[in-house]
Design a protein around this nucleic acid. Structure first.
Lengths: 232, 232
DNA sequence: ATTTCAAATACCGTATACCAAATACTTTTC
DNA sequence: GAAAAGTATTTGGTATACGGTATTTGAAAT
């Protein structure tokens, strides 16, 4: 049946249309992640019916997607007021970073104790392309390497659950990090700390790797606490 | 209008009718939490319409509640098969405990470093009612104290986000802990470890408190890994 | 008796209609 | 003219209807 005469059956790529719900979910999440919320002056309000028109679907899948996003903390629905993109308060941001530090610290410990030498090498290689002297001219590039570095540690830990949890946190913190990295000297200090972390991982020193990663992230929390009075 | 003649306006208790969605959500979550999933031999299937009849609402709020529960990992929806209560595999349980250890360890560190003496006293007082000699006769009572102890640490940390995250984990782990605690000697060892944790908190030794709490929870993970081959 | 195919049924995803509540605007009265 | 009340519009919550697909069951043929 799959082969009649010379004609091969061309299997269509299937389009992988998971469902309108998930399609709406990823579309909205992308939109929220890409918009720098903390640059906006006032709260962003989402209109259900407007989104329906924009995405060409009915309210049901939109509402399901919004419910998911609300539980993940990206939007907040006020009964008869509307649905708003949440801007975390400074206190909430700090708590989020604390959780992040705890999870990534644990991941670093596990990576030091259990990851393959190969995985450790991958982590160390993340910054090979970035010469330290041209750091401040290539902040975007460094920022990407930064993200890859942290992802590599979590991957090396072998704990996929930590990966899932941190993924959402990173999306939340995107805007915050971007602001923080521009402040003076943070990029250099960040790079130096990364070097230490790599050292600890190569030495298979779980205690030290955990401590360094934790302090590295808590440093961001402290930075936000001191320098970001404008938030909220 | 609120006071006509002798008649005072009787303000109704308001019924706290949040919404059918959330009502269905808490009802289902309660039901899931109370049923010991790991004792059941086969998977538990949920029927949407049946739930509609049982709760007396339409499919919409039920579906919204189920969507939330699915994202929290309590149920899993298979396209045309039905909705099943998830039984985590052993690997998933261990990953969950690892995350738990990371979060609660961080909470212990923060409690040691920043909590009031009052809060520390509250933590220490959790086990005052439990005489160590009658431990095994009063396992249920001890189990409750156990939960309060861990909650108290997190409360003392002042990080509400950790509290929210751990809350869900605890619900997931309810059944697992119940099984583990019955194994020989775990209750005694657990109590001894709690004493050490209290010591560290009173000494304001964040490093040690974190380490002890982490190891305490990872001990449960190791226990599950070794002794619970029956789970999946 | 077993296997295969078709029809029917069950169920999920989606759309839509309806309702209640809240806000905004207009009208009326003082 | 201002304030209050009522009405209208907006919007989210809930119910329900519809369509498509998968699963199951029954019948027929080998």
């Amino acid at each position: 049946m799959a082969d009649i005469g010379r004609h091969k059956l061309q299997v269509k790529p299937l389009e992988s249309t998971a469902s309108l719900k998930t399609a709406a979910y990823v579309a909205l999440k992308r939109a929220i992640a890409e918009m720098d919320i903390y640059d906006q002056s006032q709260e962003v309000r989402l209109d259900e019916r407007q989104l329906c028109d924009a995405l060409g679907v009915s309210r049901t899948p939109i509402r399901e997607a919004l419910a998911l996003l609300e539980q993940e903390g990206f939007v907040r629905s006020q009964p008869r007021r509307g649905i708003f993109i949440v801007r975390k308060t400074r206190a909430e941001i700090i708590e989020t970073i604390v959780v992040w530090a705890a999870l990534e610290g644990m991941a670093a410990r596990m990576a030091a104790e259990r990851a393959s030498d190969e995985a450790i090498r991958d982590i160390a290689a993340t910054f090979d392309d970035i010469p330290p002297e041209s750091l401040n001219e290539r902040l975007d590039e460094y920022s990407d390497a930064n993200v890859r570095f942290h992802q590599a540690i979590i991957r090396a830990s072998g704990c996929t659950l930590i990966g899932e949890l941190v993924e959402n946190i990173v999306v939340h913190m995107r805007g915050v990090r971007k602001v923080a990295m521009r402040h003076d000297g943070r990029a250099e200090q960040s790079l130096a700390e990364h070097r230490e972390i790599i050292q600890a991982l190569q030495n298979r020193d779980g205690d030290r790797a955990e401590k360094l990663v934790r302090e590295h992230n808590l440093g961001l929390a402290r930075h936000v606490e001191e320098h970001c009075d404008d938030l909220d």
